[in-house]
Design a binder for these strands. Structure first.
Length: 275
DNA sequence: CCCCAGGTCGTCA
DNA sequence: TGACGACATGGG
């Protein structure tokens, strides 16, 4: 299947460190998303897409890569807000925030605490291999991210065996809460960003950073913006601001409803340049 | 052996 | 509130 795309760069989007369940193989990105395996590569203004499940595939791909969001006009708006980051915006051309599955985002970003991208990916893969459903695609086995029900009987000790470390306790508690309805991920769509923060941060293992990642990546709340070491470095170099609270206010005042997108641009820019 | 990684929690002032 | 150490694991 071919999907026409505009202002989109598959590689920079998928490798940005947001989404963990993909691998690169023979020119294609193999993405494990919700109920299926999707194989995709870019040929200029087209995506070449294959999957074990063709049902609604085009809509799913468009939704996942936010291809219906007008990033060109968003970028123009950001430039009006702050022309000083033109180089960062230019560097980010084609990058789009992906719309990740809710439960997977919740658990993955709880695992991200004081962890590296490569290690988070390993933990998430182990969770999937041990508890997720197996999908056969082109003679290879892939494992979906497990559902809350599939994780119902997992113990903290099991999670420690998967090398989740000190995060195992919080992840275990969270799995129970989701299964018991104490935390309902579907309620968050209709919440204001501020209410959503409060709702998520009531739970142990979710602080400001993890909550902002969940709201930005799973709910497309673009006014939610995770501040990490990379963004702090940019803010220090360009605007001479070091205090985290001041950074938070500065970003919100300057970029408003697009703060999350700007901060992802900064994150990618700083990480890529440093490599 | 050190420091760091898409931090958060508990404690103490 | 604000500062500070602990926390598991892997990699440089």
């Amino acid at each position: 299947m071919r999907i026409e795309v505009l202002d989109f760069d598959l590689k920079s989007s998928i490798t940005s460190g947001e989404f963990f369940r993909y691998e690169f193989d023979d020119g294609y990105y193999i993405i494990i998303l919700n109920d299926r395996v999707i194989k995709v590569k870019q040929d200029n203004n087209y995506l070449i897409v294959e999957s074990n499940n063709l049902n609604n595939l085009k809509e799913i791909v468009i939704d996942f890569f936010s291809l219906n969001v007008d990033y060109k006009s968003i970028n123009d708006s950001i430039l009006i807000m702050d022309n000083e980051i033109k180089d960062i915006i230019d560097n980010s051309y084609g990058f789009r925030i992906q719309k990740m599955p809710k439960f997977e985002t919740l658990i993955s970003y709880m695992i991200s605490i004081n962890n590296s991208v490569s290690n988070i990916k390993k933990c998430v893969d182990k969770l999937s291999i041990n508890y997720g459903k197996c999908i056969m695609f082109e003679n290879k086995n892939y494992y979906l991210f497990p559902t809350p029900k599939e994780l119902k009987d997992v113990t903290e000790s099991d999670l420690r065996d998967l090398k989740l470390g000190f995060r195992a306790k919080y992840v275990k508690e969270m799995i129970d809460k989701v299964n018991n309805g104490v935390l309902d991920l579907n309620l968050i769509d209709d919440m204001s960003t501020s209410d959503a923060f409060n709702y998520l941060m009531e739970h142990k293992g979710i602080g400001l950073k993890v909550a902002s990642c969940i709201l930005l990546f799973a709910y497309q709340k673009y006014d939610s913006y995770p501040i990490d070491v990379w963004v702090k470095r940019i803010m220090k170099e360009r605007y001479y601001i070091e205090d985290t609270n001041k950074i938070k206010d500065f970003i919100n005042e300057r970029y408003g409803k697009y703060s999350g997108i700007v901060i992802q641009y900064m994150f990618n820019y700083k990480r890529n340049i440093s490599k």
